[in-house]
Design a binder for these strands. Structure first.
Lengths: 221, 221
DNA sequence: CGAAACTAACTCACTGGTTCGTACATTACA
DNA sequence: TGTAATGTACGAACCAGTGAGTTAGTTTCG
């Protein structure tokens, strides 16, 4: 009873199909993130959808292609979010600090994506490599960091001659680890890094870390 | 023909069993690290061993118990290695720098362990929690860091009032990420963080990062 | 216009291979 | 002789993937 067959105009079938595909992708993302590639069950995904397993094969072709489609969607969304970042108008120190905190927030908000990245690394990125969409998805963040680094050198705020990829790596590492490894870290050290009482402190810390490094304070005396 | 039955003395059977168990654990670690928990195959493990699948069930009880045994062995070895670290005789700045570099080397040398940690986090540490051995395996590293931090405050080298767990987390994050995420990072940014031409620079960087942070250079001007 | 041909979306029932785990017989040994 | 260790074969569930046909819109064309 969701729609009256007689009233359905031209493009509705197509729109239904798109909606179904989107629903499958969403459910599949959850299933893959929760159980890993091998642990995910196509039947389970089908059951949590308004469609059937047959349709998953009809639309995506197979489990692996579905998984790749999930990765493509997740990565694409992340890149889209990154493009909205604008810190160019800030002074170098504030720009880096803000970028670090935005990265922190971003990781905090996209737990499933973090897990997919972790899963993909266990498989040594074999699926990402099969995707043409993701093949050369360099990121604008690197350009941004480069520009901030140059400005900082120019102004004298930054002393360390840092590499943009290294800086991006460092910030990502901190933010990624906090979310991805929260469970084993919590089990071993009795601290939930994602708990509210630690969140704000760690968020500030990642910015200070980046700034301290770029100011050159770590070099041997 | 590996041993003469008639010449075998008392404890040899036991020693054979221990050796077989150890062999199973080693092969299983590899299999689990490569394919994840669900992706690992008990038959595959058995085939790569001088034993049969029957013996795996005889010794360990099941796939999950075998996996937990692998985790216990891996974590125990890591902790044993950590206990050999001695930087207490160094000045605070050098102690932190050395500790960071040792952590770096350690992650660099134990790729399978890194993968197991990643896998365990995907499963939200459900298996670690089932293990009594690993339940409260706090680490001596925290005490070490605490002492270094105190000494640094005392001597005036460190200005930031840092938390030992946070510092450990930061260093681990950097080292862990470089190894664990090398594949997706490489695919997206075209740089292999584990390649020789980047290794030394990043190794130095993690020490400088920690020192710069503790010296308080990241605080707002 | 209206029927027939066409096509996308969808259902149902099924299969072949895989995979964890075990029953049972057998051997080595104290 | 009794107990621990081991080999062989098998079963039952699971699970990715498919064959074959149906429904309902869309296009073509007399």
């Amino acid at each position: 009873m969701t729609s009256q067959p007689l009233a359905r105009a031209g493009g509705e079938r197509q729109r239904d199909a798109d909606r179904t595909k989107a629903e499958i992708l969403q459910v599949a993302q959850r299933e893959f993130a929760r159980h890993g590639y091998a642990g995910a069950r196509v039947d389970e995904i089908a059951e949590r959808t308004r469609t059937t397993k047959r349709m998953i094969y009809y639309y995506f072709g197979g489990k692996e292609q579905l998984y790749i489609a999930v990765l493509e969607k997740a990565y694409t969304e992340v890149r889209a979010a990154e493009r909205t970042v604008d810190v160019a108008h800030l002074a170098p120190v504030e720009a880096i600090r803000t970028l670090a905190e935005l990265t922190f927030d971003h990781h905090d908000a996209h737990r499933d994506f973090i897990k997919l990245v972790g899963i993909e690394n266990i498989h040594e990125a074999e699926h990402i490599r099969k995707s043409e969409v993701l093949a050369n998805l360099g990121t604008p963040v690197l350009d941004l960091i480069s520009r901030i680094l140059d400005a900082g050198q120019e102004s004298g705020d930054f002393v360390t001659e840092a590499d943009a990829i290294d800086v991006h790596m460092m910030i990502s590492a901190f933010c990624f680890f906090r979310v991805a490894n929260q469970h084993t870290f919590g089990a071993l050290f009795g601290r939930d890094m994602t708990a509210p009482e630690h969140r704000a402190r760690l968020r500030t810390m990642v910015g200070e870390l980046a700034v301290a490094y770029l100011r050159g304070a770590g070099a041997p005396a």
